[in-house]
Computed example of a mutant assay.
Amino acid sequence: MRNGSKAPREPAFKVEGLTKVFGTGHSAVHALRGVDLDIPAGELVVLLGPSGSGKSTLLNILGGLDHATEGRVRFFKEELTAMNDAQLTRYRRRDVGFVFQFYNLMPSLTARENVELVTEIASDPLDPAEALALVGLTERLDHFPAQLSGGEQQRVAIARAVAKRPTVLFCDEPTGALDIRTGRSVLRVLQDVNTQTGATVVIITHAAATAEMADRVIDFADGRVREISVNEAKVSAEQIQW
């Protein structure tokens, strides 16, 4: 990895002076402190940093789940920071997929039915079976979450997010509850989603080794961007060593 630049792509996100403060007065917590960055469309980006560095706060604002205190965020030609709650809801439904550390699957529904929850409200979704095939679960369509391993449950969660054909996929510690081998398989699925669908994939993690699979690595500390690096030769997820 080195600091540098590839042929520039259009930014999916352009962030300028982004600040987020929780609370007021002496109890105020400055989660983001004037963040400036671009996230190019179609890249796989890793946000690195310790707990409390501001990574998840940034994801919540980029994903339309929270509002900034100050600053500006543009998503292509739209200004997210100027949207009201109804507009942000439409943005999330239309353009954004989320994958979290915990799978949030409905235990009474099969893998196929969990994915169908999203396809029923999306405007141009993938067929649930097609989405599950993308994450390698063709043989597990009719299994319930309790019949699936942790890695398989996370892949169902990824399929559910991908089925709506999101422009951007946000993943907050997607391997945090998994062992190393299973974690690698989930990261490989995210690489495949990026290359096969063209979605911008943003992975939040504290595992520094994950940086090797990214196009771009954004290193966070104390609510600020400490460094942005570009991988000239990224590796496959299977090659990552924790």
Rank of each mutant, 00 (worst) to 15 (best):
M1K: 10
N3M: 15
P11L: 11
F13M: 00
V15G: 08
T19E: 15
F22S: 07
T24D: 12
R33F: 02
I39E: 03
A41F: 14
A41M: 12
G42K: 04
E43F: 09
L44G: 03
V45A: 08
V45K: 05
L47G: 03
L47R: 02
G54S: 06
G54F: 06
G54K: 00
K55W: 10
T57G: 06
L58E: 03
L58M: 14
L62F: 05
G64T: 07
G64L: 01
H67C: 10
G71H: 11
R74Q: 10
F76P: 00
K77P: 01
E78T: 11
E79S: 09
T81V: 05
T81Q: 12
T81P: 13
A82E: 14
A82K: 15
N84A: 03
N84S: 01
D85E: 15
Q87I: 03
Q87T: 03
L88H: 11
R92T: 11
R92C: 09
R93T: 10
D95R: 08
G97P: 02
F98G: 00
F98S: 02
V99K: 01
Y103C: 03
L109G: 09
R112E: 14
N114A: 10
V115P: 07
V115M: 09
E116H: 05
V118L: 02
T119D: 04
I121V: 15
I121S: 04
A122E: 01
D124A: 11
D127M: 06
D127A: 14
P128I: 12
A129M: 01
E130T: 13
L132G: 01
A133M: 04
A133Q: 12
L134W: 06
L134D: 09
V135H: 02
G136E: 08
G136W: 05
L137G: 05
E139M: 06
L141N: 02
H143F: 13
F144E: 08
P145H: 10
P145R: 09
Q147V: 07
L148A: 04
G151P: 00
V156Y: 01
V156G: 01
A157R: 04
A157F: 08
A161W: 02
V162P: 01
A163F: 00
K164P: 05
P166A: 11
T167M: 06
V168R: 05
F170Y: 13
F170V: 05
P174Q: 01
D179M: 04
I180R: 15
T182Q: 11
L187A: 12
L187Y: 07
V189N: 01
V193L: 03
V193S: 00
N194I: 10
Q196S: 14
G198S: 03
V201S: 02
I203N: 05
T205D: 01
H206Y: 03
H206S: 11
A207Q: 13
A208E: 15
M213T: 07
A214R: 04
A214G: 04
R216V: 13
R216H: 12
I218W: 07
D219V: 12
G223S: 13
V225E: 09
R226P: 01
R226D: 15
R226A: 15
I228V: 15
I228Q: 15
V230T: 06
V230Y: 03
N231P: 09
E232A: 13
A233G: 00
K234F: 10
K234Q: 12
V235K: 14
S236N: 11
S236T: 10
S236Q: 04
E238Y: 00
Q239H: 07
Q239L: 12
W242M: 13
